[in-house]
């Protein structure tokens, strides 16, 4: 092994070759730090109130508050509470009646048919009026 180690020519050749290697680029370590954070290899800096210790403190405080509210707070008596008034909806129905005036010699059936015809005509006039009103004002 000594003869291998004492090879000064080879040692020098290796040394010269190593010195020809370009130096590490500047900013490479900053780039690596960025990717290490990206790969979750590093602990992320969290605000104090979001730290693990504080998280447990908040959790404990919430539990205590919940316990106090549920078990220790005095129950409100029903007497002090104002009576609840439930208003029931009322419905008023008005019944309308149709009175047909019978012309001379008209039977009630004929009068009813004439009335329906009149209603139909009124409806058609109303439909025509609406149609007129919603007619677009512009032409293509």
């Amino acid at each position: 092994m000594n003869d291998i180690k004492n090879d000064i020519n080879l040692k020098e050749a290796v040394s010269r070759r190593e010195q020809q290697l370009p130096p590490m680029p500047e900013g490479l370590n900053e780039k690596v730090m960025g990717s290490l954070e990206e790969y979750d290899c590093l602990k992320k800096k969290t605000p104090l109130h979001r730290g693990r210790g504080w998280r447990w403190v908040f959790l404990a405080a919430a539990c205590v508050a919940g316990f106090v509210v549920i078990f220790l707070a005095p129950p409100k008596s029903a007497e002090k509470q104002p009576p609840v008034v439930i208003e029931e909806p009322t419905f008023n129905f008005q019944l309308s009646t149709f009175n047909f005036q019978l012309d001379d010699g008209q039977t009630p059936l004929e009068a009813q048919l004439a009335h329906q015809q009149e209603i139909k005509k009124k409806g058609e006039r109303l439909a025509a009026y609406i149609q007129e009103q919603i007619k677009p004002e512009y032409d293509y």
Binding site: P22, N29, L42, K43
Partner: peptide
């Protein structure tokens, strides 16, 4: 996972590692 330790690792051992890779 302390970031400062990682920075020290990179500055202390980075050049030797880069040399090996190169």
């Amino acid at each position: 996972q302390k970031p400062a330790a990682c920075q020290k690792l990179l500055s202390d051992y980075g050049p030797a590692v880069f040399r090996m890779v190169q």
